[in-house]
Amino acid sequence: MLVVVCIKQVPDTTQVQIDPVTNTLVREGIPFIVNPYDTHALEEALRLKDRFGFRVAAISMGPPNAEATLKKALALGVDEAILLSDRAFGGADTLATSRVLSEAIDRLNRQEQVGIVICGKQTIDGDTAQVGPGIATRLGYTQLTLVDRVEKFDPFQGRITVRRKLEGRHETVEAPLPVLLTVVRELNRPRYPTVPMRLESEQATVQVWSNQELQLDQNGIGLKGSPTWVSRIFSPQREKGEIVGDGVADPAGAAHLLVDKLVSRDLLVV
């Protein structure tokens, strides 16, 4: 059985800053990293590999330099790494992205049956959390989002039980394979690569698939296949630290002011 993880290379958004003068994004020198949620997806796939000996393939759609991201996955122990890279894939929204990714998974499935696809809950750049459901729906896999624990996995029966983390509650769901999971950070603690694996991965090759391999209709991928487009980008109003009321002279008054502020800004619900 093959386990597929989808990982995306993203700019390290914690390092993104807004230029206070021009009010634009300062991206200079900001490194690309593996989407943090995807490191947890990868870890879960590798745990399945450790436990059951499944093969793990990592796929990523992105520019040629996203190869670095896949090399990291190789250093951690994935068996196969595929970069989906083509001019024609560029500018995709989630609909077009999930079309390319699911086609790639389908291609892999033709070589070896795919049992589980694992995605991060969302990325830290696009932030949409839509690609996972998109892939699952296209492939007709059962979609289990926001997984924070794999309760039971029985590869012989082909069933999996997971716990999902929702607002104020947790839900335990059972489903037959194939499934697509999107995972949250609480699921596991990603492993650290050993040096021999790092060195090995420097030699390992990342396969690159372009649309030559996937043969998707140009109108369904990339910019053309994307119903949504970004018409404008601007900087948000930044909240500056604010001291509320006079907590020394009138603590109760300051407390009231604070609560009312939270409620009026809809940060708190009473």
Partner: peptide, 9 residues
């Protein structure tokens, strides 16, 4: 660290 990737959390 380098061979086992085993260290305090």
């Amino acid at each position: 660290v380098q061979m086992r990737a085993s260290f305090p959390e």
